[in-house]
């Protein structure tokens, strides 16, 4: 059986194994974020939400320095991670389920691509888009706000960056969880319900069972300072980190979520 005359002018795709099709899928996902106005819209949203609130907090602190309000780090932990975590759940609920329901996943998977490369491209493309627009750039603006407008002052840059990476890990946890749920459900409601329920469970249950506090991914970015500082806060403020256990647990959970998502998607029928 001969191949059509005409294809010999091309360099054929040479990816093998699970990576088959990944390059093009990744390019497509990257383009959907950064070669359109999508990244800018997300960035504006998060700058307004995170940096806007932090600027208001900084202004309030500078106007009444004698009044003891909530610590700025705690507020950043809430705005920079809780708001973004819910945003991630909303964005990611469509990453797999949206494509399954709209039929674009079936179309893409009728090309020479593996299911694993499909999942990984959606994971990595969205991770880059979300982390850059919701955490890294708004986080750097928070650094400026702290330095210029608040008594916190100029924090050690490397420590602040390390703290921002912890924020990224926290967001990555919700991102991988929501992605995994997308491989199990056919509706967006099902996908988003589980992460939201888990978020509130992680918020309330450790107060009933304090031993869970040390492995709770929420405590990566904000915590009750009376109990223990968050890892991100410790790194940003240059104080020693009490335990890395939350980081290890979160990384392991992310890896499990990704592995389960790939396993489940490989069994999906279109």
């Amino acid at each position: 059986m001969s191949t059509y005359v005409g294809n010999e002018v091309f360099d054929m795709v040479s990816e093998r194994g699970w990576r088959r099709g990944f390059g093009n899928l990744w390019q497509g996902e990257f383009s959907s974020w950064f070669r359109s106005s999508r990244w800018l819209k997300h960035l504006l949203l998060w700058v307004i939400l995170v940096d806007g609130f932090m600027a208001i907090m900084a202004y309030a602190t500078s106007q009444a320095p004698e009044q003891e309000g909530p610590p700025l780090f705690l507020m950043y932990g809430i705005f920079g991670s809780m708001f973004v975590a819910f945003g991630v759940m909303i964005i990611m609920q469509r990453a797999i389920v949206g494509e399954k329901r709209e039929g674009t996943a079936a179309w893409v998977l009728s090309k020479p691509v593996t299911r694993s490369s499909f999942v990984m491209s959606r994971l990595l493309g969205n991770t880059l888009g979300i982390l850059v627009t919701s955490t890294l750039i708004p986080g750097l603006l928070v650094y400026l706000i702290f330095g210029v407008f608040t008594p916190v002052g100029w924090l050690p840059p490397l420590g602040f960056l390390a703290g921002l990476l912890i924020f990224c890990l926290h967001i990555f946890f919700w991102l991988t969880l929501t992605l995994m749920m997308g491989t199990f459900f056919e509706s967006a409601t099902g996908v988003i319900a589980v992460p939201i329920a888990l978020y509130f469970a992680l918020w309330f249950i450790p107060s009933l069972i304090p031993s869970l506090y040390k492995i709770n991914p929420l405590v990566l970015t904000f915590s009750d300072p009376a109990v223990m500082p968050s890892i991100a806060q410790s790194l940003m403020s240059g104080t020693p980190v009490e335990s890395w256990l939350q980081v290890i647990v979160t990384v392991v959970l992310c890896v499990i979520f990704i592995a389960v998502a790939i396993w489940r998607f490989n069994r999906e029928e279109f």
Binding site: G6, N7, V9, F10, D11, M12, V13, S14, G21, G23, N24, Q27, G28, K111, P112, V113
Partner: peptide, 18 residues
């Protein structure tokens, strides 16, 4: 272009022609 790139890496000029 997106579909073609599941099969061909390049050159882009040939992909454009196709």
């Amino acid at each position: 272009d997106y579909t073609a790139k599941f099969f061909f890496k390049g050159p882009q000029s040939e992909i454009d022609k196709r």
